[in-house]
């Protein structure tokens, strides 16, 4: 091989090596969306969903026990009395929920409906859980059987 050939080949080889080093060292810093490992975003989403599910489980049980309290407190009752008593008991228990999950849900945020089989609580307020790239909103509605 002549000297000119060796020089060109050496330059090409060094350039190739520099390109590899640059590529691997800079690939994480490329502009665009935040890079994450495979499945990282999904895990974040699942964790957010689970956090919301924990709050919903608490609300469902809380409503169930508020209704049981109402039955215990009333000797003979009409549907209207049950609903009124239920709202009082639910409000008392909401205090605990707000304290645990750092929320500010009020009784006024709910619209209660009563039929022959159940009490439904429809919330006008949305709760949200935010983390990196995720803003998860859910309504703390419930339905309990009479």
């Amino acid at each position: 091989m002549n000297r000119k050939g060796v020089a060109i080949l050496s330059l090409a080889a060094i350039g190739f090596l520099v390109a590899i080093v640059l590529f691997y060292s800079q690939v994480d810093k490329l502009p665009g969306n935040q890079k994450s490992y495979l499945g990282e975003a999904e895990v974040g989403l699942f964790n957010t969903y689970i956090a919301a599910e924990k709050e919903l489980l608490y609300i469902d049980l809380m409503a169930e026990y508020a209704l049981q309290d109402s039955y215990e407190q009333l000797e003979l009752y009409s549907s209207k009395e049950v609903l009124e008593k239920f709202q009082d008991n639910f409000q008392t228990r909401l205090f605990n929920f707000n304290e645990i999950y750092h929320r500010d849900l009020m009784l006024e945020d709910y619209q209660f409906t009563l039929d022959d089989k159940s009490i439904k609580g429809i919330s006008s307020k949305e709760l949200n859980i935010t983390s990196d790239n995720i803003d998860y909103k859910f309504k703390p509605n419930f339905r309990i059987s009479l």
Binding site: Y37, L38, G39
Partner: peptide, 22 residues
């Protein structure tokens, strides 16, 4: 990258088991 991915895989498993508690 492999270390990062395996951490995520472990985290995924924990996440799904957490769902199982609920």
């Amino acid at each position: 990258h492999e270390i990062g991915t395996s951490k995520i895989l472990a985290s995924e498993k924990n996440t799904l088991k957490n769902m199982d508690l609920l």
